[in-house]
Design a protein around this nucleic acid. Structure first.
Length: 934
RNA sequence: GCCCAGAUGGUGGAAUUGGUAGACACGAGGGACUUAAAAUCCCUUGGCCAGUGAUGGCCGUACGGGUUCGAUUCCCGUUCCGGGCACCA
């Protein structure tokens, strides 16, 4: 009997041995170069892992194992992003404490992950919801509270320095409340009265990236704008650094592009405008060149200027308009772009032309961007154009040849004209007046900026779309703020008293008085003198004060977790100096691109802040980012003839009136339905009849999102049970490029399973003994092996795992045909396959008497000498068509090849009566001879 | 509307980055072994045409042009799918 590939036995054995031997334990080692591989840690939901989750983990595990075999000291940790809404909503529904359900989910995740054979060092596991972890989330928050962003230095500085500066400038108020208010405008973590995304259904505020098209990402509930006092992080201060950093990291262009869009840098000018009534305001424009085409000004309805400029005659009309705007939801405003607006009664004076232009109030101008006021140039801005047409305002074209009869000319290309229309239409400052005629638009912008700056009419200004992050949530299941309110002034609980643990509450819903869930906590007041948390009843506002009731958002705990993995058990520091200096930053980060404008921005911001403090050693946290694609579901359908219990096979369904019904993909194989399993699937189908084709029931299929309701969820446990973890790992990678989204289709998995069986069979003779010999390997086998090493090595480097696996398949087939039994060849195979299929690799390695774990076996190098050909077969083509193939010496020069090709007997018939126009020889490819009739 | 990425057999996908398109795998068809099934192995498999045959010819990488001796690859235009931003001045 040949030895069977018993994957169950092999995989269980190695899981046990890896744990016993602590194979994957990592310690800092100054003598070895480090490599830090990281996965975006999962949120442990109740549904468990489906087959899409491990994709990225497998990809990074292969890389981590490969790097380890190359001699790097590889950190490859795993943990859980455990705070968040779903656990809390489940708690509200079932009355179970979210901690209980979260920990149960974590256990389930761990069990599933363990089956797949990852090289995680579980001693370094972190969970964001445990006090020893969130102590450092709270600590970082306090550091942000006690820092401000110095615009000159472009970095965070201790707040004391700012106080010092205020004192020197004589701006430091004596009143404590005034001091607090002043500093709040500068702290990096601050309490701000801002417009927030309020989601009444979830009872909490949301960050900008948690809202899409006016509804919440979680749940899809409507979101409204509301002015609220919230904790915020001054992310916007880091806009420029967040933008600049993108050029230094190895991320995909599309993700960088997304972040650039999100940061939204735009360079322009701010210009001071005076009204005829003497009020002044500032407008922001990126098209300074169009100052001569301004025909009106527009203020955002929410702007404080509205009140100041509105004339008594227009007061009623303006108030009505403001009322109308307030009645509209964010969503309506976003979808419906009908032109609305009202005249304020006031006029602004264009400082360049001296023209008097009406000031309008319109909702198309946003209060939150720029100055909330614009100059309108209808000829060259489509929104201004629509507004001007609607209110019948003048339109002045400024670009040569621009046709503005139907629409505005928005392009930034062309030659400027009409600027000014006549010399007397340009106001003179210090003997200079602006003339842009004849310049290109780009030159005109620069010239206007210079003019504005030189004559003190405004300033050059860069605006960013990136907003500060709202950092508080009205929820229970999150990090509590280490903050108490002393006479209404937010005050930090001393650092030594951290962590402030999340208190127990009976109810997770907000209190009747509208307070967040922490309002339900009884022991939730700060005793300043005794430095401890005490009963709320003791609050006297003298020594005992209320503690903040808000909690931190999901991204708080996930922003710096990669630093914690470096030194997870340290209770003196987030990360020790030594560990941070050794591990530096993440070399390879693998995760989904859906975090592009959330986690990946926050994390970069958070790291930059810690970098300013000297805690993090690198400006950017993630050197290289690989975005794994989403795994979509492949649903199967059966077709029920209407009003019967008869199901018709896919190929015959068009002959009947049928309803397609989702059927569980786990009872379908290669689109053939397992009839017995189907009958057992649901009582409704127990008596089902079938119309078969070729004796089989063929199901239809469609690509959809993987979800329970589509019955297309494939569970990795099932695959591991039927084929083994190694097959699962191979197949997940074989499916296609890691970055690409693709549907899961279990149909192809047999190919990977067969490959492993073939690989296994190479090593054993028909009696089940090792079939290795010490024979000299044949030249063919050496070539096969070295070709494989070369291909796999270069493919792993670029995450092209699917082509590596193809190369393995080819190599195993070749070796099998060569009947190769040479130890030299065969003992290298487990080493090469180890990153992909570690269990079988260990088993073979051990069987052959390999030393230690195959995980530490050195990655082999290929040698070109085995790959060199003695002769090369080249195609000889005439006029671009391949006419014949011939053999050339491998070292022939192009000239020699041309010589050989033109004198070859086969060439004669093509050259007869022809003259050679041109000859080209591409080494190792083709000899091309261009001919034409004489 | 603006920006980014993509389109290759029945299917997932390769193609040394301008050099014989379709590697590898699935599926399908045919065959061997077997009482049978499973497993395993062998052959065929982009389309069309010619030939008994080894084989040969034409077309073919979303569509239309261009550059080139040569284009899946580079350039221009069009269509379709996916992603990001979006009344951001």
């Amino acid at each position: 009997m040949a030895k069977e590939y018993n994957f169950r036995e092999i995989e269980q054995k190695w899981h046990r041995l890896w744990t016993e031997r602590q194979t994957y334990k990592v310690v800092e080692d100054e003598n070895r170069r480090k490599f830090y591989v990281l996965n975006m840690f999962p949120y442990p939901s109740g549904a468990g892992l489906h087959v899409g989750h491990p994709l990225g983990y497998i990809a990074s595990d292969i890389y981590a194992r490969y790097k380890r075999q190359q001699g790097f000291n590889v950190l490859n940790p795993m943990g859980y992003d455990a705070y968040g809404l779903p656990a809390e909503q489940y708690a509200i529904k079932t009355g179970q404490h979210p901690e209980k359900t979260t920990f149960a989910n974590i256990d389930r995740y761990r069990e599933q992950l363990d089956k797949i054979g990852f090289s995680f060092d579980w001693d370094r596991e972190v969970r964001t919801c445990t006090p020893d972890y969130y102590k450092w989330t709270q600590w970082a928050f306090q550091k942000m509270f006690n820092s401000y962003f110095d615009d000159e230095l472009q970095k965070a500085q201790p707040i004391e320095r700012l106080i010092e500066k205020f004192k020197q400038e004589g701006k430091w108020p004596s009143d404590e409340k005034a001091q607090s208010d002043l500093l709040m405008n500068h702290r990096i973590a601050f309490l701000g009265e801002t417009m927030v995304n309020w989601c009444p259904k979830l009872g909490t505020v949301l960050a900008n990236d948690e809202v899409v098209e006016g509804v919440s990402v979680r749940g899809g509930y409507p979101v409204e704008q509301k002015k609220m006092r919230q904790w915020c992080l001054r992310v916007s201060a880091y806009s420029q650094r967040l933008l600049d950093g993108l050029d230094t990291i190895d991320w995909s262009e599309s993700i960088k592009e997304t972040q650039k869009n999100w940061i939204g840098r735009s360079e322009g000018a701010e210009v001071e405008i005076k009204t005829t009534d003497g009020v002044s305001f500032t407008i922001f424009t990126t098209r300074a060149d169009t100052m001569f085409g301004v025909t009106f000004f527009v203020l955002a309805p929410e702007s404080e200027l509205v009140d100041k400029v509105t004339t008594p005659e227009q007061r009623v009309a303006v108030d009505d308009y403001i009322k109308y705007v307030k009645s509209r939801t964010e969503r309506e405003r976003m979808i419906d772009h009908t032109v609305t607006g009202v005249f304020s009664g006031a006029y602004g004076i264009n400082p360049i032309t001296g023209d008097r232009c009406p000031i309008y109030i319109a909702e198309y101008v946003l209060a939150g961007y720029g100055t909330g006021a614009i100059m309108a140039v209808p000829a060259h801005d489509s929104r201004d154009y629509a507004f001007a047409k609607h209110f019948d305002l003048p339109i002045i074209p400024l670009v040569e040849g621009a046709d503005i009869s139907e629409e505005s000319y928005d392009a930034k290309e062309g030659i400027v004209t009409n600027s000014p229309i006549s010399p007397d239409k340009s106001v003179c400052y210090d003997g200079e007046s602006l003339n842009l005629n004849g310049l290109t638009i780009k030159e005109a912008i620069a010239e206007t900026k210079r003019f504005v700056k030189a004559h003190n009419l405004g300033r050059v200004k860069v605006n960013y779309r990136l907003r500060d992050a709202i950092f508080s949530r009205q929820r229970y299941w999150g990090e509590p703020f280490p903050v108490y309110y002393k006479n209404g002034i937010p005050t930090m609980i001393p650092e030594e008293c951290l962590p402030i643990e999340l208190p127990q509450v009976e109810k997770f819903l907000p209190t009747e008085t509208g307070e967040p869930p922490l309002g339900n906590a009884q022991i939730w007041a700060w005793d300043e003198a005794n430095r401890k948390i005490v009963d709320k009843k003791l609050i006297d506002e003298k020594t005992v004060f209320p503690i903040e009731l808000y909690t931190m958002p999901g991204f708080a705990g996930s922003s710096a977790y990669y630093l914690r993995y470096m030194d997870p058990h340290n209770d003196e520091a987030l990360v020790s100096e030594k560990a941070a200096a050794y591990w530096q930053n993440v070399d390879l980060y693998v995760g989904g691109s859906e975090h592009a404008t959330g986690h990946l921005i926050y994390s970069r911001f958070w790291n930059k802040f810690l970098f300013d403090l000297g805690i993090s050693k690198k400006e950017e946290p993630f050197k290289k980012l690989v975005n794994q694609g989403m795994i979509q579901g492949r649903s199967n359908f059966v077709y029920r003839i209407k009003e019967t219990n008869t199901f018709v096979s896919f190929g015959l369904k068009d002959k009947y009136d049928v309803t397609p019904i989702h059927v569980d993909v786990n009872i379908v194989k290669n689109d053939v339905l397992d009839l017995e399993a189907f009958k057992a699937w649901s009582p409704e189908y127990a008596t089902a009849d079938f119309v078969l084709e070729d004796g089989k029931y063929i199901c239809g299929w469609a690509i959809e999102k993987m979800s329970k309701s589509m019955y297309n969820v494939v569970n990795p446990d099932m695959i591991v049970e039927n084929y083994g973890a190694d097959t699962l790992r191979l197949y997940e990678m074989f499916l296609g490029p890691v970055e690409q989204s693709k549907p899961w289709d279990t149909n192809g998995i047999d190919g990977c399973f067969r490959f492993l069986k073939k690989l296994w069979a190479l090593f054993w003779d028909k009696d089940g003994n090792l079939a290795l010999t010490d024979d000299e390997p044949s030249a063919d086998s050496l070539k096969t092996l070295h070709k494989l090493i070369k291909k796999v090595t270069s493919d792993i480097e670029v995450f092209s795992y699917n082509t590596s696996i193809s190369a393995f398949m080819v190599a195993v087939n070749e070796l099998s045909q060569q009947k190769c039994t040479s130890r030299t060849i065969l003992q290298t195979l487990p080493v090469l396959i180890a990153p992909f299929a570690p269990h079988i690799a260990e088993e073979l390695w051990e069987a052959m008497g390999g030393e230690g774990s195959v995980c530490d076996a050195r990655w082999p190098k290929w040698e070109e000498k085995y790959l060199v050909e003695t002769s090369v077969k080249l195609g000889v083509q005439f006029n671009g068509k391949v006419r014949f193939d011939m053999l050339f010496p491998a070292d022939a020069t192009p000239e020699q090849m041309i010589e050989l090709a033109t004198s070859a007997p086969e060439a004669a018939k093509y050259l007869e009566g022809m003259q050679i126009v041109k000859t080209i020889a591409i080494p190792k490819r083709i000899v091309n001879i261009v001919v034409k009739p004489c």
